[in-house]
């Protein structure tokens, strides 16, 4: 095992360009597979958990008792539906919106560490592009989804879609600043913007070091992902389906799917920044001890996703003016307060 790692690190030092190319190609294939399958499981899990909250069965016909193949059936249906592009739509933008959404999620995935391997007492993080500024980069790439939403809404030439698109942008910009300040507060304590270093510096999880920042970040993240208390851009009861009213078939499926891709990546980001990432006691069983950091991260991500679904089933949708008001008048000053707290704790008590 040591020999292999040594050869790889030596090769990475000698031929950085070739190494980056190989890592990029392998990573793109593996991670797009992992993220897409993961998002499918998230959709299935959400339907199952939501139905539990509502005291009903949820999908239970296709693929045995648990309805695990429901999404395969849904995909077949979406692929064989008639492809309709509205006559008045701006065709190029309309077609490109789902593609841009998919590109945005892949751009998030490139810099997120998906865990670590524990070999001989050392953690080797599994990340494709280990940037110095990956926290800033991931946060920026997460908000690219808003551009795809705006493209979809504006090009549809439908009044409901336009309202949804404008609401989406207003909501995103109101919560982008508090979210950024929370990432900065974490980075102040970690003395770095690199996600791997942020995880490594968490001897105390940051959720305990700065609880206020954690709450603000969770709210801002839910807003960024457009999930239920903050899904004004697709509020069904008011504006039909918001920005994707005119989308149908697989074009709609792609947009819907990217939302869940983003939810998965966002919950990984939350676990990395505040919940100690892959930290946890090493399981003293051969093989399992190597992947035990992966298991811990996976468990944290599942808990975060379950929490998101819980929030969705418990809370009602807020009005858009309430959302923007709350963002500008409460979240922003509170996040700055949290930054001061982080500087205070980081400077004098660490």
């Amino acid at each position: 095992m040591d020999g292999i790692i040594e050869i790889i690190t030596q090769f990475a030092a000698d031929e950085p360009a070739v190494f980056a190319l190989i890592i990029g190609i392998i990573g793109a294939a593996v991670i797009s597979g992992v993220v897409n399958v993961g998002a499918m499981l998230v959709i299935w899990g959400e339907r199952k958990v939501l139905s539990d909250f509502c005291n009903r069965y949820g999908p239970n016909r296709v693929g045995g008792r648990w309805g695990i193949l429901q999404l395969g059936a849904d995909a077949i249906k979406l692929f064989t539906k008639e492809d309709i592009i509205p006559g008045d739509a701006d065709k190029a933008v309309y077609v490109w919106a789902p593609i841009v959404a998919s590109m945005a999620t892949m751009l998030v995935a490139v810099a997120i560490p998906f865990g670590a391997l524990h070999i001989n007492g050392k953690d080797y993080p599994l990340v494709v592009a280990n940037m110095d500024i990956s926290a800033l980069y991931v946060e920026a790439a997460l908000s690219l989804m808003a551009i795809a939403v705006f493209m979809a809404g504006y090009s549809s030439n439908n009044k409901y879609s336009i309202l949804g698109a404008f609401r989406g942008i207003a909501r995103m910009i109101a919560y982008e600043v508090p979210m950024g300040v929370c990432v900065i507060s974490v980075a102040v304590m970690a003395h770095s913007l690199n996600l791997v270093e942020i995880v490594e510096s968490q001897t105390v999880w940051y959720v305990f070091a700065q609880p206020l920042g954690f709450v603000i970040f969770v709210i801002a993240l839910i807003t960024d992902l457009g999930r239920i208390p903050f899904d004004q851009s697709e509020a069904e009861e008011e504006i039909i389906s918001g920005y994707n009213t005119e989308y149908s078939g697989i074009r709609w499926g792609l947009l819907y799917f990217q939302e869940y891709n983003n939810a998965l990546l966002g919950s990984i980001l939350l676990s990395l920044l505040f919940l100690g990432g892959w930290h946890g006691p090493i399981i003293p069983i051969p093989i399992l001890d190597i992947i035990s950091p992966l298991i811990w991260l996976f468990m944290k991500v599942v808990i975060v996703l379950w929490f998101f679904i819980w929030v969705r089933s418990s809370l009602f949708r807020l009005r858009i003016d309430q959302v923007t008001n709350f963002g500008w008048k409460w979240m922003l000053p509170l996040s700055l307060l949290n930054l001061g707290w982080a500087v205070l704790i980081g400077s004098y008590f660490a």
Partner: peptide, 16 residues
């Protein structure tokens, strides 16, 4: 080190 970004961008476009 930013080469993977371009590959991921292409990959993100290929799937849809």
């Amino acid at each position: 080190n930013y080469i993977p970004l371009i590959i991921f961008l292409i990959m993100g476009a290929i799937v849809p």
